[in-house]
Amino acid sequence: MSEIIKKFLYVNRKAPYGTIYAQESLEVVLIGAAFDQDVSVAFLDDGVFQLTKGQDTTAAGLKNFSPTFRALGDYEVTKLYVEQESLDERGLTLDDLQDIQYEDEDDDYAEKPSIIVVSRAEMADVMADQDVILSF
């Protein structure tokens, strides 16, 4: 395995169930996590809908993959950037999103929030700071 750590950003801009993009993205993030790179995940535009709480797909007959976002910390994916403007446009606040945490191994396993709310300008900075951007 390469010793060079690259910064990978997975960009999510689609709502969870209308297309397969969101679920595929999550799967790729989990698989990619095996490669010990510096991984971040971005949620903007309709992508912010992926993180909302209270999703229940039972009647729709689909797999509810929203609980899996809470397992990302176990895979050491701990930076989930969410765009404030995208939340605002959709009438959402941070309270409408799942509480996603990770345990910081370097800080006595303290539980810390994985979601980082950023402005559109800050999101552009996050994107510009990457080696590789994978869009879904």
Partner: peptide, 9 residues
């Protein structure tokens, strides 16, 4: 020429 490519799907 660019450092990275972002495909806006």
């Amino acid at each position: 020429e660019n450092d990275r490519t972002q495909n806006w799907l």
